[in-house]
């Protein structure tokens, strides 16, 4: 136990040795210094008079946003339908593509741990590193603006998410059940069907619904870069500074998100 010896020979308890203490303080000091340095680099071009002005700006925008322009709702039904489709079809596509990736990435199902597994993991990390909006940016350039780009963008972002959580679930299955079905003389496909799929099905359903919920949020903004849905309307309203329309769109987005959260909670409850 680290102790300190005072001048008069008394012993005092310390949680750490002085050396540990010093290292710890030094680590914290480095972290703070780094943060301050980053702050300075980041704000070197910031115009502080704008920042000081921000509350007035906020109040101004806030004032312009109320009341929302309710009659604009007529033009939001289609984009809303598109947004839901982007999320749902995107999730469906991600599941179709993500499930095989998960099986290739899981240690206990991968055909080759040295070649295929790292490749599958690379697919997963690439998909996860890049936000749906950036995928959308890319796909709008490639496929042209529209709902399709949105669907593919959402799908590409979700593959990694679905595959990562699913392969972790696959690695956690009870191997005894697999062994038992193998011992009956079942083929590998049958072992998959009878011993593995039943064990990962709840996880699979949970992951899918969870991702769908997230995708509803994401699909409401991919339109900002031209990939269809409510974001498209948001972009055009922002361009003409039509703040009452913006506030209505935000309300619709909020309502959709709350609804999807409610639906996914219900579904998850029913499955598990």
């Amino acid at each position: 136990m680290p102790v300190a010896h005072a001048a008069d020979g008394r012993v005092a308890w310390r949680r750490r040795t002085p050396r540990q203490d010093l290292l710890r303080w030094f680590g914290w000091f480095l972290l703070v210094a780094l943060t301050v340095f980053c702050w300075q680099v980041m704000t070197q071009d910031t115009i502080w008079s704008f920042v000081a002005d921000a509350p007035t700006q906020a109040a101004d925008i806030g004032q312009r946003m109320v009341p929302p322009r309710w009659e604009y709702m007529d033009r939001l039904w289609w984009p809303l339908w598109d947004t839901i489709n982007i999320a749902t079809l995107g999730t469906a596509l991600a599941v179709v593509l993500g499930v095989p990736v998960a099986f290739l990435a899981a240690r206990n199902t991968t055909p080759s741990a040295t070649f295929v597994r790292p490749l599958a993991l690379l697919v997963i990390v690439s998909s996860r590193s890049i936000n749906a909006l950036i995928w959308a940016l890319l796909l709008v350039t490639i496929l042209g603006p529209g709902v399709l780009a949105g669907i593919v963008a959402i799908a590409l972002r979700s593959i990694g998410f679905v595959a990562k959580l699913l392969y972790e679930a696959i690695e956690e299955i009870d191997q005894a059940q697999v062994e038992a079905v193998t011992a009956t003389g079942a083929s590998p496909a049958q072992v998959m069907d009878y011993a593995m799929v039943p064990q990962i099905l709840p996880a699979f359903a949970g992951i899918t619904v969870f991702r769908w919920d997230i995708n509803i949020r994401e699909s409401s903004v991919v339109g900002l870069v031209g990939a269809g849905g409510l974001g498209l309307q948001l972009e055009s309203s922002l361009n003409v500074l039509a703040w009452p329309q913006v506030s209505l769109i935000l309300l619709v987005v909020l309502a959709t998100v709350l609804l999807s959260e409610w639906v996914s909670a219900k579904v998850r409850h029913a499955i598990i």
Partner: peptide, 19 residues
């Protein structure tokens, strides 16, 4: 709200840039 929507508002309030 999505980060991107919040970002739109902050840009409107404090101007373009990393702040």
């Amino acid at each position: 709200f999505q980060e991107i929507i919040i970002a739109i508002f902050f840009v409107a309030m404090v101007g373009f840039g990393p702040f």
